[in-house]
């Protein structure tokens, strides 16, 4: 109280000049300069190796890029990815809901499901389902009094394509279940509490309040899963489903143009993954619209790289 506070602060003219004469010298970051030089050198060496080695046979690769067999294989790979991902999301959501259910039996069942299907390698599951007929000869549905309703031989419907769909969707569902469960858990409990207080029943709360909010947390890892799955489908080559990799293999088995065809395969996987990343970005934007500050660094970089319009906020 006793100290008198000045209402205005005067600056001496000489001091003001001294302040305006100051310049800032940026910090010298030698480590970054050295790192940059090394990265450039490495890039040069790699490009030179690729360009100068005739074994890459870029011309041959370009010739196979739109080969009809390759196109058919690419189509099958995409179809497998879409079907498996949709099934995995449906099954995964059900498992995730069981995982947060009040019933210990449902929680236990879903826990074991996740433990098993995430624990066993996908390739082994795939071959297992393909060989289901060794375990079960035929599948039939019999009811008391009505007799056998239908019966099919396992070998008739466990085609390579069908076993691939069953095996990989069950496997992928294990991963999706964990992602969706984490998403559900990330929604604050106050949200479902407020919905309860408004008279909304459990299923409605799940469908209208919890799951939509979980989407925001679920989408980024789901995008990664879809990209992983696209590449994982190349495993179906082992059970002779003619996907992208299988068709390329069958060509180079005849012509011995192994490297060019692997380049073709790699090119198409990279192309599809790039398109999926852009799609993922737009999906995330759609579900994140109530939370505009969320803008992952990678997405910002991607947006800048592709110079996407209409995304400025």
């Amino acid at each position: 109280m006793g100290v008198a506070h000045p209402t205005e602060i005067g600056v001496e003219p000489g001091a003001a000049a001294a302040v305006s004469r100051l310049t800032v010298v940026p910090q010298r970051r030698y480590g970054i300069w050295i790192g940059t030089a090394l990265a450039l050198l490495l890039a040069f060496l790699i490009i030179r190796a690729f360009a100068s080695n005739p074994a890459f046979a870029w011309g041959t690769a370009a010739g196979y890029l739109f080969h009809p067999s390759i196109m058919r294989g690419l189509g099958n790979t995409l179809m497998l990815t879409v079907i498996i991902m949709v099934l995995a999301i449906v099954v995964g959501t059900v498992i995730a809901i069981m995982r947060v259910s009040p019933s210990p039996v449902l929680r236990g069942f879903s826990g074991v499901y996740v433990w098993f299907f995430r624990g066993v390698p996908a390739l082994i599951q795939l071959i297992f389902w393909f060989n289901l007929s060794l375990l079960v000869r035929e599948i039939s549905l019999s009811l008391p009094f009505l007799g056998t309703l239908f019966s099919v031989r396992t070998n008739d419907f466990m085609t390579p394509f069908f076993s691939a769909v069953v095996a990989l969707s069950l496997c992928e569902a294990g991963y999706m279940a964990e992602i969706i469960r984490a998403g559900i858990k990330s929604v604050p409990s106050g949200q479902s509490e407020a919905a309860s207080a408004l008279g909304m029943p459990y299923r409605m709360i799940l469908k209208r309040i919890t799951l939509p909010q979980a989407m925001r947390f679920v989408l980024p890892p789901t995008g990664n899963e879809a990209i992983n799955l696209l590449k994982m489908t190349s495993l179906v080559t082992f059970i002779a489903v003619d996907d992208l990799f299988y068709t390329a293999q069958s060509i180079y088995a005849r012509t011995f143009e192994t490297i060019p065809l692997l380049i073709v395969v790699a090119f198409w996987y990279l192309a599809v993954v790039s398109i999926m990343s852009v799609g993922q970005h737009f999906l995330e934007r759609h579900f994140g619209r109530s939370d505009v500050r969320r803008d992952p660094l990678t997405m910002r970089a991607l947006r800048n790289a592709f110079n996407l319009r209409g995304v400025a906020r």
């Binding site: 604050p188 106050g190 949200q191 509490e193 407020a194 919905a195 309860s196 207080a197 408004l198 008279g199 909304m200 409605m204 209208r208 309040i209 939509p212 909010q213 925001r216 109530s290 939370d291």
Partner: peptide
């Protein structure tokens, strides 16, 4: 329960919905 309104310390508005959507959610759904 729908006939008993409740307000919370942390508001608990549905964060994925606009103000209007928050208000009409329970009347239209319940």
């Amino acid at each position: 329960r729908a006939e008993i309104g409740m307000l919370f310390q942390s508001f608990n508005l549905f964060s994925h919905m606009t103000v209007m959507e928050n208000l009409i959610e329970a009347p239209t759904q319940v």
